[in-house]
């Protein structure tokens, strides 16, 4: 199980990447910053950066519009 933004939970599976989590959460917003267990993941690594089970994933959306 993975915790997203200290609130939502996502079922973990082998080989799961940051991009997989973004897809499951429906996070399509372009202005985001992702950390996995407190460490920043670069945008170009979303497809390859694997997430360990039990990880604490934060997807920070920078507000705009409004």
């Amino acid at each position: 199980m993975i915790k997203v933004n200290k609130k939502e939970t996502v079922e973990w599976r082998e080989g799961m990447t940051v991009q997989d989590v973004l897809d499951i959460m429906g996070y399509i917003y372009p202005q985001i910053t992702v950390t996995v267990n407190g460490r920043l993941v670069q945008r170009e690594d979303y497809h390859t950066h694997e997430i360990p089970d039990g990880a604490d994933v934060n997807v920070f959306h920078l507000a705009h519009g409004g």
């Binding site: 991009q19 499951i24 429906g26 399509i28 945008r43 170009e44 979303y46 497809h47 390859t48």
Partner: peptide, 12 residues
């Protein structure tokens, strides 16, 4: 709400 996001850039 599983929406497919656009693939990000690759590393070369």
């Amino acid at each position: 709400m599983a929406t497919q996001t656009k693939a990000g850039p690759k590393k070369i």
